[in-house]
Amino acid sequence: MFLTIKSQLKMNCKLCQENLDAYREGSLPAGIMTQVESHLETCDSCRRVLKIQLLADRVIGVEKDAEPDPFLATRVMAGIENLENAGMEKVTPFPGLLRPAFIGLSIAAAVLFGIFLGNLSRPAYEAGKIPVELALINDASLESVDLLSLE
C-alpha cells in the first residue's frame, strides 16, 4: 500500500533515493521502477548517489569474496590443544568454592604471622617489667654528675 501511494506521487529526488536500495536489488514494482529510471536519466545528483551505492556494493562484494587462511582449522585445533594442555598443567589443590576460603585463610595467617614477628622485635622498655638488677640500685648513693664535672 505504501508503495502504491508512493507510485501515485510525482517522483522527486527524496523518493528516488529512498527507492534506490530496492532499485539495485530489482525488487521495485514495474511502475515505480520506470519512474526511478526516468528520474535517474534526468537527475545528476541522484545518479551520483546511485554510483556511490553501487561502489559500496562493490566494496562489500570484494570483502565477501575474501577467503580465510587455508590453515585456519589447523590453527584452531592447535589453539584448543594448547588450552587443554595448559589446563592440565594448572592443577589447583583448592578448586571451586574452597578457593575463596583458602585465600581468606591465607591472608589471615599472613596477618597473624606479621603481628607475631612485630612482637618479637619490640624494644625492652615496652616490656613492662624492670630487671631485678636495676630495681636494686639506690639512686641516693650514686655520685652526682656535678661532682664529676668539677674534677
Binding site: A66, E67, P68, L72, A73, M77, I80, E84
Partner: peptide, 17 residues
C-alpha cells in the same frame, strides 16, 4: 576432540565473512 575440526571446516567461511 578432533571432531571439532569438522565444525571449523564447515563454518569457517561463514564466520570469516
Amino acid at each position: 576432540r578432533d571432531k571439532f575440526r569438522i565444525f571449523v571446516e564447515r563454518y569457517q567461511q561463514m564466520i570469516f565473512r
